[in-house]
Nucleic acid binder design. Structure first.
Length: 847
RNA sequence: GCGGAAGUGGCGGAAUCGGUAGACGCGCUGGUCUCAGAAGCCAGAGCCGAGAGGUGUGGGGGUUCGAGUCCCCCCUUCCGCACCA
């Protein structure tokens, strides 16, 4: 009832102008990206959003705001900026929702996209909406299929019978990268191993380049390291071992060929093909039992037991060591992986910890062939470091590196082995037994041939089906499509379409290229456009994609590079990971979570409203079950988009994990309201008069311009806000000179574009502030005529004196000694040394 | 176990070519305005101490006139990898 009194007619109210500016930008296509050869380009990109039913969470606007600030400031600094947005819209979650809600995934996906888009528009991001794309629409996935054909043409796509990660809950296979600890990373559902015929992409052929090209990238070191570890390049040798009494041999991979003389046994993985052939009659029962057990154990079990003890069984067969003819027993053990190297190893227990553990348990001899430091007994513990070779015949006395080279050369010359580079990285399992994904441009003929469709036959549209479950015969959901889709003709032969679909990663492997030429109907994109826009200059997204998406996209990019489609070896020049935004949660003694509106603080302790038992307060990841989710749209309704954007940046460094605090949003809202009141008379709505600037205000604006300019380049978006706040504080409620006020609006506009456009308009300008030139600062304006010099006595702070900036050493010392407090501290002491740091401090070293 | 990042007021965080620790914001205290409240505005504050002063950037040592910053040891937290021969 007192609102008319308490709220002036023209008080700061973002809801009155924010939507108006959003409409203005849309109507005028203010942020259209133009291939302008007269300007340098800048390409900003956020990781492809997956539009979920839950809508935006506060993590989305964090990276989007950071990108938007860079994009807006780069435009103001004369760059032609590409800042696009689109939707990663194929994938399992939509299909599961479809089953749950009895609706078609296309309908669900489009609804979610509409919701996301509405929310993003309400936050005022400067996207070129004319380039909006959606990976589930046929005008996009036609080109995903096109790129698949390119991969196939180059021998990089093949069908293979492979052990796959089958997730029964999802009803599909998963890529290695999607499985952690035997569980699907997205849902935590268990994964088991099966043999299946699947489409694979030969990413391993690019292993070397994927490692080597990391070198020149401006990426966080730990992300590069994660990629290196995942690719896991290791250099060594393959060695062939004949089997005593059999016309057979097997090959091992080792990184330590220099320890060949110390091999006291060999191990085959339980899946190794030779096992049946070489096992002796008296060992067969044990071997069969061991192999059967190993086969039935899940990866998770295998991993768990790895932490405890080694297991294994002797085959009864012996291998012949090619370097010295020694016969060593062949064991089977599941600590040797079928999928890495050759699935077989030579074991050198003296110099490998795993072999040592195994040898100790099963009583296999341990033979030292590399000298260890005094006091190190290889019988007790393996020595894996450097040393001189011993017990190695003619090779004794060599260091590890030299011996490796010599023995590898000897192996090659004598046909017993060869130099070899191995990767942990395996080929990418590229098919999924699901509906909501890109169909393969592949046809299987009745004669059993696998044929690719010609480019002219694209797109292969996803057929409409009603049920998204496997067929009764166990075929993937696409088996439910009509005969007219299932059966087709290629090269004059009738055949059946591939029923698998591509994984969700396919669409996100090249979307950043489509943005460069989003409406091209002839090609995925025109290479001329790529030469202008590529590569992405700044890419921001979550650390969760450090391996998966970034590895796959780099792989495809390199293939397109080899096809002459793109002109850079790498797609993303600079990468940055935003830190997750956490939130406070409140839990009562019964373990029940309470929402922020159900709790109150009394003193330092939180209680349920009206309750008297203290609650447990924690900072946790936002989740519905913890009742600590912050909906960015709620924040917009209460404080406006500008306040949300500024708070997301003001919370702390972008890369840091940090907790959401609604009181902090109120703080930045108050800042914006102060800016508003500085410019606008709240009662009349009129622009308030400019006045004279003083030294303090002028210094503050230059400091703010400097901090904003440098902060944006360093992706430090929090401290510039502090400097702008200092300028407002320095104004003490009175507008200073017009130019300084305009500079403030210019530098604030990337963070808070709506209020800055509004005030810019009210200053009488008729064009958008987003097209203004970025201001510059003057270092000289930052320097004061007088300086405060800190004074220490014996290294302890005792006071400060104010002197002219030009004051010389003696003047400063005299001023310091004249200060009453300093004089008191110097009294009765002998000054041993006088240290003067110009412009900073004086230190009297005393006795 | 291996690798990486980080520990600063009641809270989020500033400041690292070594040079006045705690900018800015939140919260708090006091004042102003008001019949009253809210908002706004002004002022205060690391901690201990009445004060002089002491003390203080996870802990312990060291280098230095001077250390949040450099060196050594330790503790804690978070993240990644985890039989890859």
């Amino acid at each position: 009832m007192t609102d008319s009194f308490s709220t002036p007619a023209h008080a700061f109210d973002p809801a009155t102008f924010e939507p108006r500016w959003q409409a203005y930008w849309a109507d005028n296509k203010t942020f259209r990206a133009v291939e302008d050869p007269t300007k340098p380009k800048y390409y900003t990109l956020c990781m492809f959003p997956y539009p979920s039913g839950a809508g935006l969470h506060v993590g989305h606007p964090e990276s989007y705001t950071a990108i938007d600030i860079v994009a807006r400031s780069k435009r103001m600094r004369g760059f032609s900026v590409l800042n696009p947005i689109g939707w990663d819209s194929f994938g399992l979650p939509a299909e599961r929702a479809a089953v749950r809600e009895q609706r078609h995934p296309a309908d669900i996906t489009r609804e979610y996209i509409g919701n996301f888009k509405r929310q993003l528009l309400r936050l005022g991001f400067s996207y070129d909406w004319d380039r909006e794309i959606s990976s589930c629409e046929v005008d996009y996935y036609k080109w995903t299929q096109w790129i698949f054909l390119k991969l196939h043409e180059r021998g990089l796509a093949y069908l293979a019978d492979v052990p796959v990660n089958w997730c029964p809950a999802q009803g599909t296979v998963l890529a290695n990268e999607e499985v952690v600890d035997g569980k699907y990373v997205e849902t935590g559902e268990p994964v088991e191993r099966r043999m299946m015929k699947q489409w694979m992409l030969r990413i391993t052929a690019y292993g070397d380049r994927l490692v080597d090209d990391l070198e020149g990238l401006d990426w966080p070191e730990h992300v590069k390291e994660m990629q290196r570890q995942w690719i896991g390049r290791s250099e060594g040798a393959e060695v062939d071992f004949k089997i005593d009494g059999h016309d057979a041999s097997f090959t091992v991979f080792t990184t330590r060929p220099d320890t060949l003389f110390g091999a006291t046994y060999c191990v085959l993985a339980p899946e190794h093909v030779l096992i049946q052939k070489i096992t002796s009659a008296d060992r067969r029962a044990d071997v069969d039992a061991y192999v059967a057990t190993a086969r039935n154990r899940s990866d998770l079990d295998r991993q768990k037991s790895a932490e405890k003890e080694k297991s294994g069984v002797f085959t009864g067969a012996y291998a012949i060591n090619p370097v010295n003819g020694a016969k060593v027993p062949i064991w089977i053990a599941d600590y040797v992986l079928a999928t890495y190297g050759t699935g077989a190893i030579m074991a050198v227990p003296a110099h490998d910890e795993r072999d040592h553990a195994f040898a100790t348990k099963f009583g296999v001899p341990i033979l030292q062939v590399v000298s260890a430091p005094a006091g190190h007994d290889v019988q007790a513990e393996a020595w894996t470091g450097d040393g001189k070779s011993m017990n190695s015949g003619a090779y004794d006395g060599l260091d590890v590196a030299t011996f490796k080279k010599q023995i590898t050369a000897w192996l090659e010359e004598n046909g017993h082995g060869r130099k070899r580079v191995n990767f942990k990285l395996r080929d990418w399992l590229f098919s999924r037994q699901r509906y909501w994904g890109e169909p393969f441009p592949i046809v299987h003929t009745d004669a059993g041939e696998v044929k690719t469709l010609p480019y002219s036959a694209l797109p292969v549209s996803l057929p409409h089906i009603e049920e998204f479950k496997p067929t009764a015969e166990g075929l993937p959901p696409l088996g439910r499509a009509e005969q007219a889709w299932l059966q087709t003709e290629v090269d004059g032969v009738v055949g059946w379409r591939e029923l698998n679909t591509m994984p969700q990663w396919a669409g996100s492997c090249w979307y950043y290229l489509r943005y460069m030429d989003a409406r091209n109907t002839e090609l995925p994109f025109d290479p001329a456009n790529e030469r202008y826009w590529g590569p992405v200059d700044l890419y921001i997204g979550g650390i969760e994609h450090a391996v998966l998406h970034l590895l796959y996209a780099r792989f495809w990019h390199k293939v397109l590079y080899d096809c002459g489609m793109v002109h850079t070896k790498e797609p993303f020049q600079k990468l940055f990971n935003q830190g997750m935004i956490l939130s406070f949660s409140y839990k009562d003694a019964n373990g029940k979570y309470l929402g922020p509106h159900e709790v109150e603080q009394r003193g330092d302790v939180w209680y349920a409203i009206g309750g008297d038992t203290p609650l447990e307060v924690k900072i946790e990841k936002m989740s519905k079950s913890k009742k600590n989710v912050v909906d960015p749209m709620d924040v917009v309704v209460e404080y406006g988009a500008d306040a949300l954007r500024i708070y997301e940046m003001f919370m702390g460094p972008l890369e840091q994990v940090k907790p959401w605090q609604t009181s902090g949003v109120e703080g930045v809202y108050r800042f914006l309201a102060r800016v508003w009141r500085l410019f606008i008379d709240q009662d009349s709505g009129a622009l308030r008069p400019f006045g004279p600037s003083n030294r303090e205000v002028t210094k503050a604006i230059h400091a703010a311009v400097k901090e904003a300019t440098e902060g944006i380049d360093l992706l430090k978006f929090n401290t510039p806000i502090a400097k702008m706040m200092e300028w407002v504080n320095a104004c003490h409620g009175e507008l200073p000179a017009k130019e300084e006020c305009e500079d403030l609006l210019r530098i604030l506009s990337p963070w808070a574009p709506h209020v800055c456009e509004e005030l810019w308009l009210r200053l009488g300008h008729t064009t958008s502030i987003s097209a203004e030139a970025w201001p510059t600062w003057n270092e000289s304006a930052l320097i004061d005529d007088t300086l405060e010099i800190a004074v220490q006595v014996g290294g302890k702070m005792r006071g400060a004196v104010t002197v002219a900036r030009t004051a010389d050493k003696d003047t400063i010392l005299a001023a310091a000694k004249a200060d009453a407090t300093i004089a008191r501290h110097l009294e009765g002491k002998e000054i041993l040394k006088e240290i003067v740091v110009p412009g900073r401090l004086v230190n009297f070293v005393v006795k």
